[in-house]
Design a protein around this nucleic acid. Structure first.
Lengths: 118, 118
DNA sequence: TCGCTACTTAACGATATAGCAAATTTCTTT
DNA sequence: AAAGAAATTTGCTATATCGTTAAGTAGCGA
């Protein structure tokens, strides 16, 4: 079925909008950052805990968290010596869940990788 | 409000799943590709039409369309000498609309860039 | 103040990719 | 078969970014 052809004119996205949307998706385009978000969706954690959970280096995690914060996806709150991170954008979970379920649909045979249950 | 702490165990995403989800988001992380999707959401078009609409080169558009097709977001159908493209994944529009409306919320002052109307 | 912990920043090498130009393939038409 | 149009592929350069190591900053505690 082809798309609608002459219904709504529907103005196009501006170059600025395209850049901003792209930069948001780019923040979600790295496995390590998705892993950090996945961890934070279960419970708020300090940066040190994320370093330990992932097994990556402090420097690496720090940079990835900066990217996520600049994209508005997480918030960081200093608590004495440590810094606690939490999901700041409610759509993060929705976006990932949409991608996940879509991928599940596409590869029924390999569904277990996406936590589809038995 | 902190996250739930000890409700559901909620198994984590596997490395394979993280890679696949990341690659999907990466397909959406370039302004030119978002522009192509935006154009295709209005009406199915040939590659030549997309080249003309964007003002970019055939080679460049061809490569971007390949990325989108490999990510399962568009489908291409050869029709004689030309190739017609159409959105293949229904979540594309939803994902972009979610990002858009979220960005609109965040920057009320610059909302016109996102087609928020007056 | 000194040292320690938690985190960030800088500098680096390796890899990926956007865009261009040129060569190549594929298909239609004459 | 030859010419030409539509797309893809191939090199190429420039730029971005992942991860590492090392150096720097900030906030406790003794």
């Amino acid at each position: 079925m082809p798309n609608k052809n002459k219904t709504e004119p529907k103005k196009q996205l501006s170059p600025l909008a395209l850049d901003l949307i792209a930069s948001r998706f780019r923040a979600l385009s790295e496995p390590m950052r998705l892993r950090l978000l996945d961890l934070l969706m279960q419970v708020d954690q300090t940066i040190g805990q994320l370093v330990e959970s992932t097994g990556s280096s402090q420097a690496n995690i720090s940079k990835h968290l900066s990217v996520l914060r600049e994209a508005g996806m997480i918030a960081m709150r200093k608590d004495g010596l440590t810094t606690v991170c939490q999901i700041a954008d409610p759509i993060v979970g929705e976006l990932c869940e949409m991608m996940c379920s879509r991928l599940r649909d596409e590869m029924e045979g390999k569904a277990q990788a996406f936590g589809a249950g038995t």
